[in-house]
Design a protein around this nucleic acid. Structure first.
Lengths: 342, 342
DNA sequence: AGCAATAATTGAAACGTTTGTATTTTAGGA
DNA sequence: TCCTAAAATACAAACGTTTCAATTATTGCT
């Protein structure tokens, strides 16, 4: 039982393949009655378009490349579950369209750039989604220059408009810091992703601005940057344990690092709520089960990642990039009082 | 600058496209010197094979379908990070081959079956990887019947040999239970995935066998089955809190549910190490940072998931299924003493 | 009824491969 | 040198689509 092709339909309908092709794509040059008949037959014999033929002919790939650094490659550390969620969201958005997602796991910036060049040069995909953006991101410059459709998760500092989806890291960071200041904390440590990432920069800006507005100065080593693993969170706490100004609050960029902070508390005998507290941003609902549950900023990751999928398709279909930008504001979830008790 | 094709090479080398095609695939009917020349030119002009033409002609897709239930679809609960790791492993194994992975996220068993039928009937992939196997798994029967290459993550009770990769859940469960019995626990609760899954069955068997061997009976409600989320782990502890036989140990099927158990301990005032303890299997290195760190069985998930990728390719290329089976034994990591202190 | 304009359809080529068959080249003997 | 067998290459069709140009059918008007 060979697969039904457009030719099968043509035969059955006593039409030429060309007409059938047009009928199926609802072309205006074919009579309504004919279209109906063709669709009828197609349905009947369970015809589905062969993508390979389509691609070969049109030169389009109908696939979206998702170029993401895979957190767990190499390291055995948990860097959060974002990867999964993002993938899910993108695929959810693609479902029902003609597009498929092709995942390109990469290890670092350089190999992601390499992969992108490949994709663009050999037209391996119609559009690209990237994450881990940098302030001056060469990949973005490249794709802009090549006029290749793309959407970024996270922003950069390019002035040419491009399509992005992002959480408002700076404002969130500002508010988180301001809130803790209001609650009486003065020695606030912030745990951030590696320095070269845009959202690390944004977070640091928000943090510093809040301190500035409150007229408070903190030592520079209260800004920690590194891989957002539990290990790093733990190491940060340990490193600052004997600091002159003892930290009383930590703002972690994700739940994984916050878990590490809690682990350090436990190990060092730092009592939560008395000696220090922890907050996390980019919550994805794990920290509700930490011991103790911590205050977080919830990131609606299904929403952002779904937008990624939608945007890339609309971008591919020609919508201007400046219409495809979304900034979401994470939402505070107060699971603790976060004042220090005497 | 149009992409270089086989035709470009043919022109440059003054050969027919057919010969070039054969030369590139190292066919014995073409002279060595010619092959060399062709390769030289191909290299020079940066030729890469167009997959669409290849597919169209050969009818092969050179893609591997990964049909997995995506944990976070719908629910906001963390079900562990396995999904990511498995994907990574598979893609790692595929890297360098001609094959690409195509992810098919599904919600439940029925839709996964549906998706598989689709893939097989329309030859959307050359092989399929599935997980979430059941003792009598209709999807496996179907693919066996259609003689379609596949590899499962987890086993079933089919007698026809098929290719699989699995952790030895039963033995692990047996040993985990036996160990706790040796340490003096008698009221051991086991938290398992939903009943219909094969590895739930295996876990329960191992558990029961260990108790039997020790001549101990536990109430049937000490075997909990449900989604492996923190929420479920927490709910289980709460449900058994007022039980006649107070549980003193929990064996969780993953770290997510163990996190929930710890959370319940904290909330109910159950003191870890004094009132009760928790173990987890399928460790992927998160629980080292729990409060407190818990004893686990480490699953080398990169290894197993890499095997999935390797196996499906070898299966597609014709290796018999019975040569493509792997069972790995998770390794005990004792982070706690796990005896109850008075 | 005849004509022009338009609507609907057909034919054929093309996308980049692979592969079966036909053809040419080469090598080895006599 | 010529013939035969084997080796190397060329030719052409095919995979399933789309699309341009060409053809046929239909309509509206006088």
């Amino acid at each position: 039982m060979a697969r039904a092709t457009i030719k099968t339909i043509a035969q059955k309908a006593d039409l030429s393949v060309g007409t059938v092709s047009r009928a199926l794509k609802d072309c205006s040059s074919v009579k309504d009655k004919t279209k109906e008949r063709v669709r009828q037959i197609a349905e009947e014999i369970g015809y589905v378009r062969n993508l390979d033929g389509l691609r070969l002919r049109t030169g389009r790939t109908y696939s979206v490349a998702v170029v993401m650094t895979t957190p767990t490659t190499g390291s055995h550390e948990w860097e959060g579950v974002e990867y999964t969620n993002i993938l899910n969201g993108i695929m959810g958005a693609l479902r029902g369209t003609m597009y498929r997602a092709a995942i390109y796991p990469v290890d670092d910036f350089d190999s992601s750039f390499q992969e992108i060049r490949n994709i663009v040069e050999q037209r391996l995909a119609d559009g690209i989604i990237i994450s881990g953006t940098r302030p001056d991101d060469a990949r973005i410059s490249y794709m802009l220059e090549k006029d290749f459709p793309f959407v970024t998760y996270g922003m950069s500092e390019h002035f040419t408009p491009y399509s992005y989806v992002d959480a408002n890291s700076q404002q969130m960071s500002y508010e988180a810091t301001a809130r803790l200041l209001r609650l009486g904390h003065t020695n606030i440590v912030t745990i951030n992703p590696p320095d070269e990432l845009m959202y690390s920069k944004q977070r640091q800006r928000g943090y510093l601005r809040a301190l500035e507005d409150a007229g408070i100065k903190t030592p520079t080593d209260f800004i920690a940057t590194g891989p957002l693993t539990p290990e790093f969170g733990k190491a940060t706490v340990k490193a600052l344990y004997n600091h002159n100004n003892k930290p009383t609050a930590y703002i972690c960029a994700n739940e994984a690092s916050a878990l590490g902070v809690l682990s350090a508390f436990h190990e060092l005998g730092i009592e939560f709520g008395k000696d220090a507290i922890v907050n996390a941003t980019d919550d994805i609902n794990v920290s509700a089960y930490f011991t103790p549950p911590i205050t977080t900023y919830y990131l609606p990751i299904e929403e952002t990642s779904k937008a990624l999928g939608e945007f890339i398709i609309r971008r591919i279909e020609g919508e201007p990039a400046q219409d495809l930008q979304r900034m979401v504001m994470p939402q505070l979830i107060e699971r603790q009082d976060d004042r220090l008790k005497p």
